[in-house]
Simulated assay, not measured.
Amino acid sequence: MTYNSTLLRRPGAVEAGGLDAGVAAHYGDPYREQRLLAGVHVAAAQGKNLTAVVDLSHRGVVTVSGPDRLSWLNTLSSAQLTDLAPGVSTELLLLSIQGRIEHDVRVLDDGATTWLIVEAAEAAPLAAWLTGMRFMLRVEVADVSGLWAVAGTVNPVTEWSERLCWRDPWPHIAPGGFAYTAVPEESHPGLDRSWFEYLIPMADLDAAVGVRPLAGSWAAEALRIAAWRPRLGAETDDKTIPHELDLLRTAVHLAKGCYKGQETVARVHNLGHPPRRLVFLQLDGSQHTLPAAGSAVLLGERQVGTVTSVAQHFEMGPIALAVIKRTVDPAAELTVLDAGEKYVAAQETIVAPDAGQVVGRQTGFLRVPR
């Protein structure tokens, strides 16, 4: 069934495609929306200072309830969840036997229910798989995507302080995590992007947003790309392992017990290197178009990777994320080829070519501000 957000009725709304189909790409002024979301965090409306929000109501929401929920999810996933306190945000991966990413899940527990926020197409298969893994445990799984909407913002919303809220832990290194980038945590560009995702009853979405300024998915994507934040379905394919995207930083606990895919995680981390690595690309801005996701990344005339996400940033101009071969020289100038058009691309290293041989730094979970 095709989803169309009620906020698409707002003036100027233009629907997005791809992963964000069903919500607005923008509301008529993409650059202003991005500035509002990224820089000028508040805007005056009817005498109030209001934080801009992004409609993410197409996202999937799955709930897990029951007294065994956290210990059960802990045995299935890459994250350490047995001691997850109410109101604390984290991230987990569900992997294949070969260690490839099948689900990337935002996790929040309220003391009685664990809330799992995923990409739109992931909710039904995730709920079905979890249901099949219950056995005799005291857990109940439900896909509640039709009942709950998600709204994203860079700042906490004062009026929503009592709502459930997931705060993106990126780029802080979670307990048991490991950084695969050589950039120190205190210099990581992801620190410029705080990110909150609020859970709102679907029927209340329009009223909850009210006169608050709206920014489209294009604005959110530009900030995500600039923060080097990978996204399931964009930076991933059927071969992606967590190391290639620096996801050991926030979504993998290297010292926890056995889970599906752990052998690959440990082997690559301790004995080798991932075959590919995520890079940030600054694209030549002389063209009036952007290359599409899926475009080839070339070193000379040889393809060495693929563009995974692309956006026009309000300050940096055209930017992209790409996954390339690990052995590509980090200093090499690359080109992006799309429908015969070539774009010069200067790379910035995200996952280091020698990833696995650097020293990790650990911090704590992030607690949602109240």
Rank of each mutant, 00 (worst) to 15 (best):
C165V: 07
E185C: 11
G111Y: 09
D20N: 08
S78K: 11
G257H: 08
A25H: 07
G190V: 05
A219V: 08
R302M: 07
E301Y: 09
S309T: 13
H269E: 14
G18N: 13
H243A: 11
S187Y: 09
S217W: 06
A331N: 11
P242R: 04
Q312S: 10
P125M: 02
T306E: 14
A124E: 14
G132Y: 04
K239D: 15
L334E: 13
L108S: 11
A43V: 12
V23Y: 08
D29Q: 15
R267S: 08
R106S: 14
I241N: 06
E119K: 05
T113F: 01
P175M: 06
A226L: 10
S309P: 13
A21L: 03
A208T: 05
V157Q: 05
L36K: 01
D237N: 12
V310L: 09
I117Q: 08
M316P: 00
V53I: 06
L56H: 15
I225H: 07
P86N: 08
A182Q: 11
L245Y: 08
H41S: 08
G285H: 03
I324D: 12
V344E: 14
V61W: 07
A255E: 15
G152N: 01
A25Y: 07
L19R: 07
A296R: 10
Q262C: 09
L283E: 15
T327F: 06
V252W: 03
S194D: 13
V304Q: 14
N4T: 12
L70A: 00
P242L: 04
H188L: 04
G111R: 02
M316I: 03
Q34Y: 03
S65W: 00
V358T: 11
D83R: 00
L73E: 05
R276I: 09
T114V: 14
V139E: 01
V344W: 06
E91S: 02
F365C: 03
Q98H: 12
V150K: 12
L92R: 00
P274I: 03
H26A: 05
G152L: 02
L366I: 15
A128Y: 11
Y3I: 04
G190D: 13
V209N: 09
V64I: 07
D143Y: 09
M316T: 08
L254R: 00
D284N: 07
D55M: 02
L92Q: 02
A24V: 04
A13I: 15
G305W: 09
I350A: 04
E244M: 13
A38H: 15
D20Y: 06
A322T: 02
L298V: 03
V323P: 09
L214V: 11
A332D: 15
Q282P: 08
A45W: 02
A203K: 11
D109Q: 02
V23W: 05
Q303V: 14
E102C: 01
V351F: 04
A179I: 03
G300H: 06
L70S: 00
N4H: 14
D338N: 12
A355F: 04
L81T: 10
I200R: 06
G305V: 12
M133E: 15
V351T: 14
G47D: 05
V209K: 00
D109R: 01
L76S: 05
V107F: 13
W166C: 10
G210Q: 13
L108V: 12
E185W: 02
S194F: 00
Q347Y: 06
A226C: 10
D246I: 00
H243L: 06
V336P: 02
